[in-house]
Amino acid sequence: MHSETNILIIIIAGTFILTLLGVIIIIFFIRNKTNQQIHKQELLKTRLEIQEQTLQNISEEIHDNIGQVLSLVKLNLNTFPENLGDEVQKKLHDTELLLSKAIEDLRDLSQSMNTDKINSLGIEAALEQQLKQLQKTGKFTTKLHVGGNKFTLPPQKEMVLFRIVQESLNNAVKHSSAKNIEIELMYRPGCGLVLQITDDGNGFNPETNHPSKTGIGLKNIHNRASLIGAVFSLHSSLNNGTTISIELKPNHSFTETS
């Protein structure tokens, strides 16, 4: 009888201690991982805020200083006397044209970097402007499709989505040799928002270029998407172009607009 009681105590105590140990390990693990994720998210947010601030500073610098200086140079060119001879006149005219193009390109660049400008334009107009800039190079045909019942996104989320598009377009221009680039912005009330950037370029094998493995550009897109709680997915194969999808699930920060 005495030994039976001992066994019972061993079983109950052993079961209790081991179960508790298992539960403690799991709770410790969940808490640790959650803290790690929060910490990582905060780090990412800070990094993006710094990046955004830097872009804003560069944008202002381009607009207020370099842009102004170039405009002044253009004005000075116009002050040259007209009796300088045909050859010099032609060179001056060509220089003026090049300068005008440089000023225009710098203005576009400054606008695409300027956070306030993008926020005031709204995501659709900002995307349209971005595609127009690409179209102007004469190397690409671009299209923007907007569908569904529109709702307003918080400015920070719009900004992150816009930067994702910029990064994707940058990738397409740099690496894909694409001719056609399309952006689709689909509003799905109740389901969220889907943003797709598609090109008909070379494509690549996502297995060897997965965002978690290589490619700073794709990693940036992945990080930015996770910062706003969006799901990033990539579909690509060799010679079949690339589609980048960002799916933003609905939450309290969406507001329906008429």
Binding site: I10, I11, G14, T15, L18, T19, I26
Partner: peptide, 13 residues
């Protein structure tokens, strides 16, 4: 983990 830790003594004995 929880199941096997919890049943280790009971099933073992």
């Amino acid at each position: 983990l929880v199941y096997l830790c919890g049943t280790f003594f009971q099933m073992g004995l």
